[in-house]
Each structure stands twice: as C-alpha cells, then as structure tokens.
Simulated scan of single mutants.
Amino acid sequence: MSPSDHDPIYGDAASSEAIELIVVPRTVDVAGFPVRRALPTAKRRLVGPFIFLDQMGPSELPVGEGLDVRPHPHIGLATVTYLFDGEIVHRDSTGVEASIRPGDVNWMTAGRGIAHSERSSLEFRTRANDRLVSGLQTWVALPKSHEETDPVFHHHDASALPLLDDGGAHVRVIIGSAFGATSPVETYSDTIYAEFILEPGASVPIDAAHVERALYLFSGEIEIAGDVFEGGRLLVLRPGDPITVTARSNARFLLVGGAPMDGPRHIWWNFVSSSKERIEQAKADWAHGRFGKVFGDEREFIPLPE
C-alpha cells in the first residue's frame, strides 16, 4: 500500500480531556481497492513508531477479481499487515512467499531496501463465497540505528499471538506486551499493537505504560469518559492518562503506539527515512531498477510516481 498526496481529515478533541486529537481517515484508492488512511496527517505524523495506518475494506470482491498491489519498494520501515477477513499472498525480493489470513501478522523489515507485492490467490479469486477482505496495514518507522539493516520477513500464525478473554472483552496482543501477555513478534523499538473486540457493555482499561498511544476504532461505538465515538476514527490519547473504554455496541478497535521516535522522519511514497538525501537515493534506485526482483512476481511493477 502507498500513501496518497492528501492527508486524512482531522478534528479537535471532544470534551474528553483524555483525547488529544481525532482523525477521520480519508478514503483513497489503492490498486482498485478502497482504503481509509488515518496516518500520517498534517497535525500528527507519528504515534510512537507508527507512521502509516490504512484500513483495508471491508470490501466484498466480485468473483474472478482480487487484490493486486504490484511490486513496489520500501526503505527505512517495517510493514505490519493484520487481517480481519480474507487472504493476501505476500511475495518479496528476499525470496519469500507467504499467505496471511485473519488473526495472523506479517512483519516485513524493509531496512536498506526491499520490494514486495500483495495479491489475492487464485483460490480466493475463484471461490463462490467468503470473498470479504478487511484489515489494517501499518508502517513502523525504524530507529536510526536500524534504518539500513538487512531486509527480512517474518510471518506469525494467529495461534502464536496471545489471545485474552475476560467476559465480553477479547484482546489479541499483536506486538509488544499487554495485560501480562507478550507477543512473539520482534521489534526494533518500544511498540504496542493490540486488537480489542468488545461486546455491548464490556469495558477494558488502557494504561499509560506507553508514552504515545492511539485507538483506531474499526467498527461499532465506544465510550470514553462520557464521550461516544463511532467507527472509522483514530483517537490520539494524551500522554500519561490511563483511560477506560466501554462498548456501546459490538465494537472492534486497535491500540497502537510506543516510545517517541529518535527524531523526525521524512516520508515520500513508500520510503521513510531520517534523511531526505536517503529518500532521493531510493527514488533513483527504484527508477533505475536497482532494487531486487520480487520472487514469483517479476514481470510487473509500480513505476516511480511523477
């Protein structure tokens, strides 16, 4: 997935003092697939190491069609893909091919440079039902010490991620630690990423262990300190304030955040770096074919934007 030239829409916080900023994602088209982009924004570029957040779908794809994001490059970041519905086949220039399904997580470290594609499988394109696709793709900016690390890909099955149940609250720890459970996904900086599914009336505490935190409300309605928020919102939380989230309906939201980055980051197309010069080099490298070819997907690619 690639950023557009337009920022999402932002608004002021509601009356709740726990909310620093509310972001209403802008809908954009990626390879014919609608996505809602919540990060980056003009008012908020990062939440912890998270510099990019896209909601994919939910979209019911016609029989014979699928997701087709052609090979494209990345530097200076890790992509994190997490699905609620559907299936995506990942291929990259390190030689990896892997399918991701609901509850799994793909972590791809771009480092000094990687190219990859994301497509639907032939089986998905030809099946008669179960054709819904939805999920989140986020980018995590790498610390300066690891911006030029070797590219690598890791897939973790849903069964490997901690799943906690407490009455009407269900929590999957995707990255980092929460409620005494720790994900096996290795990171380069302090990071938290967790999925919450709440039944009506259920409540969960969100502590202030991480300096920067935000909630992305995928669906349903939640209440925080008397204020009600609906789906399709990114709620940036104020540092240092623990909160309680209560579901007004069946609700699904994601907690993202972590430690502040070690300095500002520049982002252009699919490239993230602490150096503008490094991004210029990456642009030239892609334009002149100096990234590796994507294993099993060598014939197509997305050209460098004009």
Rank of each mutant, 00 (worst) to 15 (best):
T126E: 12
H170A: 11
W139N: 05
D207K: 10
E195A: 09
F153I: 00
A194R: 14
D190M: 07
G201E: 00
S145L: 05
H170M: 09
Y216P: 02
E212I: 00
I192Y: 01
W139Q: 05
V211L: 12
D130E: 10
F153S: 00
T126C: 03
A181N: 06
I197S: 15
S203Q: 13
A178K: 12
Y188V: 07
K144D: 05
H156G: 07
R172W: 11
S134T: 02
G180E: 00
R213I: 07
R172S: 00
L161G: 10
E148G: 10
H155D: 04
E147N: 03
F196G: 00
D166M: 08
Y216V: 13
V173W: 07
L142W: 00
P143Y: 05
V152S: 15
E148H: 13
V204C: 01
V140A: 11
L217F: 03
P151H: 09
Y188M: 09
V204G: 02
S183V: 03
E195L: 13
P200W: 06
P143M: 01
L161H: 06
L164K: 14
L136C: 07
S183H: 14
W139T: 14
S183W: 05
P151F: 01
T138V: 14
V152E: 15
A194E: 03
I175K: 11
A141Y: 10
H146M: 13
G168R: 04
T149S: 15
I197A: 14
N129K: 15
V173R: 07
P184V: 00
L215W: 00
H210C: 08
V133F: 11
R213H: 03
G135M: 09
S183K: 05
L142M: 02
L198A: 02
L161Y: 10
A208Q: 03
A158E: 14
E186V: 10
A209Q: 15
S159D: 13
D165T: 15
H154K: 11
D207Y: 09
R127L: 08
A169P: 08
H210P: 02
I206E: 04
T182P: 03
T187C: 04
E195D: 11
S159L: 08
S183M: 05
I192G: 03
E148C: 03
S189P: 07
A214T: 06
S203C: 06
P205F: 05
